[in-house]
Amino acid sequence: MGDDPAVTLGDVRKTYRVGEPVHALDGVDLTLDRGSYTAVMGPSGSGKSTLMNLVGCLDTPTEGTVTVDGTDVTELSDRDRTSLRGDEIGFVFQTFNLMPKLTARENVALPLIFQGVPGSRRTERADEILERVGLGDRGDHRPNELSGGQRQRVAIARALVTDPTLVLADEPTGNLDTETGAIIMDLFDEVRAAGNTVLVVTHERHIAERADRIVHLLDGRVERVEPLRDAGAAG
């Protein structure tokens, strides 16, 4: 921890070579301060997904540096990058991505299994987080017994269970109706208010406007950064 920013991207380039080289990201600098709430917008092909994969330690850049919680991701082995991802990043996906055969509680506790946390402690922690997202009574339900909004809340609980440096959400309301989406976004406000760093990737303006600032991507570059409000003044 310390005073390092949660995430720093320094002149990051990502090039895919499928015949002609494609520059998915072409020199991106971005800093996510601790406790900040950032939205990333851009049309398809602007590099949103690539940015997410890099920040989420799922991928490494072709050039440049990605630092998460003070650790340079590009220097890490695949194994250490996986560990860092498990410890410091919480993912929330558009399609929820819950394990269908596991209960809500088990889904929330899943990341802790890979950290070697003992069973009783896992259950305790999962219940605590489920309570926090308002699903204290749904722990024994499987994903197919939950509504879309509830599933996304389970996913958010799972993202929070390891107390990560960064919660990374990719179109978190994409599969939800407007009303449920708004409830989910309220939950992100709470997450942020609790001190977590949040990065939301979206193409919907009203979702992005919940953040402190919007980073606009275009053709693999940061087109502009649009400040919305001072950090800490979520609304």
Binding site: T82, M99, P111, F114
Partner: peptide
């Protein structure tokens, strides 16, 4: 495949 992706995203090592 997707479940494997989820597990890896939340910190499962190849060995796991």
């Amino acid at each position: 495949t997707r479940e494997i992706g989820i597990m890896k995203a939340v910190g499962a090592q190849n060995r796991d």
